[in-house]
Design a binder for these strands. Structure first.
Length: 432
RNA sequence: GCCGGGGUGGGGUAGGUGGUUAUCCUACGGGACUGUGGAUCCCGCGACUCGGGUUCGAAUCUCGGCCCCGGCCCCA
């Protein structure tokens, strides 16, 4: 094998592409139902767009290069930053809230493993300039709606609010930088290490215990009063908790109650502020998360005026994998509905004419281009998934007719050329 | 960057203690069958991941690269 695709990339063949397109189109439909409009941003951007947000360390994981003008560019590792850039460049004065969605591939220089590739796709959205928790409720409902529409069965949507943990830390005088450290460890779920760090930060004993209790807290509505009691002496945390409670009430109105409240969600990113959520599917290997999002403050980091935004993205490849392991069927259509088969070279031109006529009537049609004998054509047509074959032979043509063969039943009949389109449209539509 | 398991025709595989022409299934092309498919039979096409080493001789043993699978790190 001389020519290989780069490490961590994939080719998608016909059937897989059909499945991916089905999922893509389903998501598109749902996002648009909620009033989102699609945007497309460049595959590469200034490297600075990504380092600004995530620090220089991230360069290790970015495909970056210099172009011939010496500009430092990068293949985008994610889509939130480009969307924030678009907002700053062109949409600051657009009527709010702004709802946009995107679908595109991102690139990260990482070691490939289950559910992790060097080129991968994200399908997501951003809602800029709305109000929490209203936006969050709608977005979570949207995410759940997508999965429902895709008929994915087993998944868990976990909700949390970073303001609760941060509220406690702030009140105890833990600086923002130190808080980020704490959140990072919570995100990893390493309790012992967390205790160690909290001791170093000289957090008071009571706050420490509350914090440790909170991050293990998971459940439905009933955890709210429990948390309320725990944080009652922390006004900021209490305020965030109220926001979370409000979110749950709103979610009910949006018709979604299948969530798990999980205060241990921290997200790896520093710019998330309040509500966060993640969606998990079991059995995906080390990468069980198929989606994540929340409310963040990225635009301010980029130097814009403070405007709240909420967003989330599906790891598209992981959604595909989830559907696969849960054996969810996506409809697979054949390549064409009709195959036009000339019996000999004498009838070839007539066959082209007929095929073209069908196509102009929106019937997916293939016509023999290899000059094979009829037997082979029928076999090939069958493999193509064609439901009908139009056999074009000299004998029929003398009467201005063709033979229409139904590949499922094997039945065939003579039909006059002028009626083919009508007959086929009729049968294809009633057969659906 | 680290650890473990792998890599044989287009796809799926057998062989692995070194030794003739590398097995089988499938797909593909042609024919038996010059206007009727998914059946049968015949023929054909086509592979040891790459490079070095050991050896009279390597798909097989050995070292390294590349790639795949899984895990660690990381995960915007």
């Amino acid at each position: 094998m001389e020519l290989q695709k780069p490490r961590g990339t994939r080719d998608f063949l016909f059937d897989e592409m059909k499945e991916r397109k089905f999922v893509e189109n389903t998501m598109r439909k749902v996002f648009e139902t909620y009033g989102y409009q699609e945007i497309k941003t460049p595959i590469f951007e200034d490297l600075a767009l990504f380092t600004l947000k995530s620090g220089e360390g991230i360069i290790e994981e970015i495909y970056h290069f210099q172009d011939k003008g010496g500009r430092d560019l990068a293949l985008r590792p994610e889509l939130t930053a480009p969307v924030a850039r678009i907002y700053l460049n062109q949409l600051q004065k657009a009527p709010r809230p702004i709802k946009m969605y995107y679908f595109g591939s991102c690139f990260r220089y990482e070691r490939p493993q289950a559910g992790r590739f060097r080129q991968f796709w994200q399908f997501g959205c951003e809602l800029i300039g709305g109000k929490s928790p209203d936006c969050e409720a709608e977005i979570i409902a949207l995410a759940a709606h997508c999965l429902e529409e895709l008929k994915l069965e087993d998944y868990q949507i976990h909700l949390g609010n970073l303001g609760i943990l941060r509220g406690i830390l702030t009140q105890d005088g833990v600086s923002a930088d130190q808080q980020d450290q704490v959140m990072a460890i919570i995100d990893k779920g390493e309790v012992e290490e967390l205790e160690k760090l909290l001791k170093e930060l000289k957090l008071n004993e009571e706050s420490k215990n509350i914090l440790l209790e909170l991050i293990g807290m998971q459940g439905h509505r009933e955890v709210i009063p429990v948390v309320q009691e725990l944080v009652k002496d922390y006004p900021d945390a209490t305020k965030s908790l109220e926001e979370l409670e409000e979110l749950l009430v709103m979610l009910e109105a949006f018709g979604f109650t299948g969530y798990t409240v999980n205060l241990g969600i921290a997200r790896g990113l520093d710019y998330y502020t309040g509500t966060v959520f993640e969606i998990y599917v079991e059995g995906l290997g080390a990468q069980k998360q198929i989606s994540g999002g929340g409310t963040y403050n990225l635009i301010e980091i980029f130097g814009g005026e403070k405007v709240e935004s909420t967003g989330f993205a599906f790891g598209f490849d992981r959604v595909m994998e989830s559907l696969k392991i849960q054996k969810t069927q996506t409809p697979l259509k054949g390549r064409v509905d009709v195959f036009v088969a000339p019996i000999s070279t004498e009838t070839k031109l007539k066959a082209f004419e007929i095929a073209q006529n069908l196509r102009k009537n929106n019937i997916t049609t293939d016509v023999e281009l290899v000059g094979r004998r009829l037997k082979k054509i029928l076999s090939f047509a069958d493999n193509s998934g064609a439901r009908f074959v139009v056999v074009v032979g000299a004998r029929d043509l003398e009467e201005d007719k063709i033979t229409l063969k139904d590949m499922e039943s094997g039945d065939q009949e003579q039909i006059s050329i002028e009626n083919i389109t009508g007959v086929l449209l009729d049968r294809i539509n009633t057969n659906k």
